[in-house]
Design a protein around this nucleic acid. Structure first.
Length: 848
RNA sequence: GCCCUCGUGGUGAAAUUGGUAGACACAAAGGACUUAAAAUCCUUGCCCUUUUGGGAGUGCCAGUUCGAGUCUGGCCGAGGGCACCA
């Protein structure tokens, strides 16, 4: 028998698909489309196992949809701008472009080795001018629509590298690369007005039926809608301040008012700028603000002003006004009314400064004399000590009633607030999409005219300088627009902007005039299935949803509101971690074991290894497995099979070398079985043995696979394939009808093909069949068995199984039970008090 | 602190959605073939019984039901998200 030569066979089919453009997609209005998209990779150098898992899941789905007759769009591209290229280039004195393109080449070659059904003619790269010129045009459009603006904002500033850092690049208050203490600095930044769409983005979530609830909840929390009211507090004091506006969700607790707290950035702070103590206080606040932990355990501190605030519902009550560290300027109005009895934060503040704590909500199960003393009570109850509000149900009724009263008295008005902040898109970096803006001598904004697009990145620049390299490019910066000398914006766009519309570009990757054509968008969008990691649950997915709404804003260009109809988030690929006695991480190749229990350093049995928990593969922990090596050793089909086999795609999967080997062996077993089948098919004799069995098995298998494909139970599909092998292998021991076997075998190869396409293409070719077969239809006739196993329970306990013809009725079943000696042992037919009969499945007999 | 998700053999996991718990695979132990190894194949897997059998059993405690891994309530544990959001 010929050994299965996976190298040769996989290479052969990959060349075939490439040469014949087997996965090229064309707009065809007569056919139903299916747009399958996986999150595109950052070209960091080589693909990792996470990519293998992500793209295998998408590939199985795409190939399945192709065979069921859909016009499938399955593209791939590169999220090619970003910091790593700039850093790598700086370290190795390279051009970021060269570094990136080299990586793209390597990774593309690797992806091709996986045998993915990608339409490579649609490949895009966000760092190419063909891509980012359209993005610059979008920027100008959004600017004209008023969805882009510039304002001063605080950023994380690395004083050593002279650059802005993203929040995740600040580790324990220090820059991740320089290690310098990060400062809060005010800078002029460009913003996308995403908060304008807060309500729409929230409403849109309701329409996304096929998104994981987890992701929807995360976005919902991120948008953070809250219902309440704004209240004007009358202020008394020496300053020229008459009133302060606050936002609150609990106006009903106004009678528990005890202080008013302001953010240190509140406009009133300008009156205190010369106050030494206030300066010290402000400084203290900025110190505690940096790390998350400091915030969590942070003490509430305040600075008492000489102002007095008046309770709008009880003008005789006057309370002090403080600046406080826990009040944020960019939420609400930067001012909070303090009700210590019913807000924990206010409670802690009141305790510290010995302010009055007045209980105004009594929980339903408490006495009339209930008083808050150990901690605030934010829950439901009845209003007390609140004059004309007494007796109202809190919070639902009381909040609405209080807002009505405030509105009537013109003291406040109903308001809805969102936590979602506008998206700052400026980055002081070279390797990104240039912002198509310039400034004149007076600093006035001048958009770059469309005729001057694209704004190309200058080449051959010196990356060795501190700060943004574009800033020192004078010949690039200084230009003339309409005869006027202007200076270019040197910031580039956040790379999340690039990934916010790439799904549109895949529909029209070659279009020159605009980022896409309407005709193609109308046909292909929305993405029917989007697949990627849950780490993008908020930012990337929210930005993409925003971008679609922003592009369609005012001209209602799109037929669809949401870019991604269904979302699937796959789990991570994990591996055990290893450390030696000196606490150094070791890679799996450096570790060996004789019995699978005790581990030691390879070739050094005396040096013991500490085996750590299985964690997500990462270079820093050295617990990575190189996909290319696995493909070289075991073949792409085996790797695809294994990455799907052990765990449901939504959960983390443990990489196991043993599991990998067993997948490899399985392909070889299938090959041996294939050769056995080829032998059997030479036998033209018509032996009807087992034909019905095989027909039935195949139909039931197809039915199961369909079900499991739709639900992403890919691990169960692999189990179904193993069962199929076990079934067929058993049947092949006997004589078998050749014609019928072939018919069923083709079906079986077809349903295997999304997972192991190289293998099935080869087998189908040997059989003289096309590798792309129509997906088999299920014949309902074969779904039910003539003989069924009925479980017999006595008083709810399983006592036996009876094999009978299907659809047997209850009385006939009881007759059968009477004949069964084993069952009769357990009960006396005359003592049956009640039976529960589930047709073709179960009978529960209750005995007196 | 708040929100979400999940607890099934030594391990990864199945369970037609309320009806035979542990499919399929990994690891382990025993065996067959072989001079031997590799490869391949078979058997076993908690407790009682020599076998036939029987019992317990899906984190823990209650409940609903003829029947609960699945539904309800409470508790315990693990993982993830958010961060003073008024």
């Amino acid at each position: 028998m010929i050994r299965y030569n996976f190298k040769e066979i996989e290479n052969k089919w990959q060349l075939f698909w490439n040469k014949n453009k087997s996965f090229k997609s064309k707009l065809d209005k007569k056919k139903n489309k299916f747009y399958c998209l996986e999150m595109f990779p950052y070209p960091s150098g080589k693909i990792h196992m996470g990519h293998v898992r992500n793209y295998t899941i998408g590939d199985v789905l795409s190939r399945y949809k192709i065979l069921t007759g859909f016009n499938v769009l399955h593209p791939m591209g590169w999220d090619a701008f970003g910091m790593p290229a700039e850093n790598a280039a700086r370290e190795n004195k390279l051009d970021p472009k060269d570094w990136t393109n080299k990586n793209i080449y390597t990774m593309k070659t690797q992806l091709k080795k996986l045998g993915l059904s990608i339409d490579w003619d649609r490949e895009i790269s966000t760092c190419s001018e063909d891509y980012y010129k359209h993005q610059q045009l979008f920027f100008l459009e959004l600017f004209e629509k008023g969805l882009v603006y510039r304002k001063e904002n605080y950023v994380n500033w690395d004083p050593v590298d002279e650059t802005v850092l993203a929040n995740e690049q600040v580790i324990e208050g220090r820059g991740w690369r320089s290690g310098a203490l990060v400062e809060r600095k005010k800078l002029n930044q460009w913003f996308f007005n995403i908060s304008k769409f807060s309500q729409e983005l929230l409403d849109g979530l309701e329409t996304l039926k096929s998104w994981p609830n987890k992701v929807k909840t995360m976005q919902k929390n991120w948008i953070g809608k809250s219902f309440g009211c704004e209240i004007d507090f009358i202020i008394e004091g020496k300053l020229p301040i008459k009133k302060i506006k606050c936002f609150t969700t609990r106006p009903d607790t106004l009678f528990g008012f005890s202080f008013l707290a302001l953010s240190v950035d509140h406009e009133i702070s300008k009156f205190y700028e010369d106050n030494k103590d206030f300066k010290l206080f402000k400084n203290e606040c900025s110190k505690t603000g940096t790390t998350e932990e400091a915030i969590a355990v942070g003490e509430k501190i305040g600075f008492k002003t000489d102002l007095i605030a008046i309770n709008p519902l009880n003008p005789t009550q006057k309370v002090p006004v403080y600046f406080a560290n826990f009040v944020l300027m960019d939420y609400g109005f930067g001012a909070v009314f303090g009700c210590p009895a019913h807000d924990q934060r206010d409670f802690e503040f009141a305790k510290k400064y010995k302010l009055k704590i007045k209980t105004v909500v009594r929980p339903h199960d408490e006495e009339e004399t209930f008083e808050v003393n150990e901690e605030a009570y934010p829950g439901a109850g009845v209003l007390i000590n609140s004059d004309f509000l007494n007796g109202l149900e809190a919070p639902e009724k009381s909040v609405i009633e209080t807002i009505n009263i405030l509105e009537k008295k013109k003291l406040g008005k109903k308001q809805i607030n969102y936590r979602l902040k506008d998206w700052g898109v400026s980055r002081q970096r070279y390797w990104g999409c240039p912002i198509p803006i310039a400034y004149d001598e007076n600093g006035k904004t001048v958009p770059i005219p469309r005729s001057m697009l694209p704004v190309k990145l200058p080449e051959n620049i010196n990356l060795g300088v501190k700060g943004n390299p574009l800033d020192s490019q004078n010949d690039w910066k200084k230009i003339i627009i309409n005869g006027k000398k202007v200076t270019r914006e040197t910031d580039t766009l956040d790379t999340f902007v690039c990934s916010s519309w790439y799904y549109l570009r895949f529909c029209s990757p070659k279009e020159k005039q605009y980022g896409y054509t309407k005709e193609e968008i109308d046909y292909w969008m929305p993405v029917d299935q989007y697949i990627g990691g849950v780490e993008h649950a908020i930012l990337h997915l929210l930005y993409s949803r925003f971008f679609m709404k922003a592009l369609g804003y005012k001209n209602n260009e799109f037929n669809v509101d949401e870019p991604f109809k269904s979302l699937f988030t796959q789990g991570m690929v994990c591996h055990e971690t290893y450390k030696d006695n000196n606490n150094n991480w070791l890679s799996p190749e450096e570790v060996d074991s004789n019995d699978g229990k005790k581990y030691f350093k390879k070739n050094k049995p005396d040096e013991k290894i500490i085996v750590g928990p299985s964690e997500s593969m990462s270079k820093s922990k050295k617990n990575t497995i190189d996909p290319e090596e696995m493909i070289n050793n075991y073949g792409a089909d085996a790797v695809r099979l294994f990455i799907l086999s052990d765990s449901p795609p939504a959960k983390d999967v443990q990489w196991s070398e043993q599991g990998m080997i067993s997948s490899y062996k399985f392909i070889n077993k299938l090959w041996n079985m294939h050769n056995l089948i080829m032998e059997k098919l030479k036998d033209n004799e018509e032996n009807k043995n087992f034909s019905e069995d095989i027909n039935k098995y195949t139909n039931q298998l197809v039915d199961k696979i369909n079900f499991n494909l739709e639900k992403f139970n890919y691990n169960v599909i692999i189990a179904n394939l193993y069962q199929t092998y076990n079934f067929l292998n058993e049947k092949l021991k006997y004589k078998i009808d050749a014609k019928n076997l072939k018919k069923n075998y083709i079906k079986i190869l077809t349903i295997m093909s999304p997972v192991i396409p190289h293998f099935t293409s080869e087998c189908l070719e040997i059989l003289g069949e096309n590798q792309f077969q129509n997906w088999p239809k299920v014949n309902n006739k074969y779904l039910e068995n003539e003989i069924v196993n009925i479980v017999i329970q006595i008083n709810g306990k399983k006592r036996g199984v009876i094999n009978v013809n299907k659809d047997i009725n209850e009385s006939n079943l009881i007759k059968e039970i009477k004949k069964d000696d084993k069952l009769n042992k357990f009960f006396d037919v005359n003592k049956i008090s009640k039976t529960f009969f589930v047709k073709n499945r179960l009978m529960n007999i209750l005995i007196k």
